[in-house]
C-alpha cells in the first residue's frame, strides 16, 4: 500500500469511473457528480506524487486545496445553470437539450 503506483491506480480507477458516469449519465446532476469524482481523482494524484516524490510536501496539498475550492465554485455555477435549464425545458436530462445542433 505504500507505493506510488497503488495510489496512482486508485486515482486512475476513480477517474475512469467518473468518466464513465460523465459519459453515461443523462441527468445533468449525475454528470456533475461524476465530474466531482474525477476531480477527486486528480487530487489523489497530486497527493500521491506529493507523498512519494515531491521535494516540498506542501505544494501538493496547496494544489488539492485549490482544486477543491474551484470544484465548489464550479459546482455552484453548474447547479445554478442546471436549475435555469430545468426552468426552461422542464428537464435536467441532457438529451432533452438539443436545440442547438448542426
Amino acid at each position: 500500500m505504500n507505493s506510488l503506483h497503488t495510489y496512482l491506480f486508485i486515482a486512475l480507477v476513480l477517474f475512469c469511473i467518473g468518466l464513465f458516469g460523465l459519459l453515461k449519465r443523462r441527468s445533468l446532476i449525475g454528470m456533475l457528480i461524476s465530474v466531482e469524482l474525477m476531480l477527486n481523482a486528480v487530487g489523489l494524484n497530486f497527493m500521491a506524487f506529493n507523498r512519494f516524490l515531491a521535494p516540498d510536501p506542501a505544494v501538493g496539498q496547496v494544489a488539492v486545496l485549490f482544486i477543491m475550492g474551484i470544484a465548489a465554485a464550479e459546482a455552484a455555477i453548474a447547479l445554478s445553470l442546471i436549475l435555469a435549464l430545468f426552468r426552461k425545458i422542464r428537464s435536467i436530462n441532457v438529451e432533452q437539450a438539443r436545440q442547438l445542433k448542426g
Binding site: L19, L23, V94
Partner: peptide, 16 residues
C-alpha cells in the same frame, strides 16, 4: 455537421 448532433455526451466521447 451531423457530428454536432446536439447531444452533449457524444461530444464528450469524442473529446476524451
Amino acid at each position: 455537421s451531423l457530428l454536432q448532433s446536439g447531444l452533449l455526451q457524444y461530444n464528450l466521447f469524442t473529446m476524451v
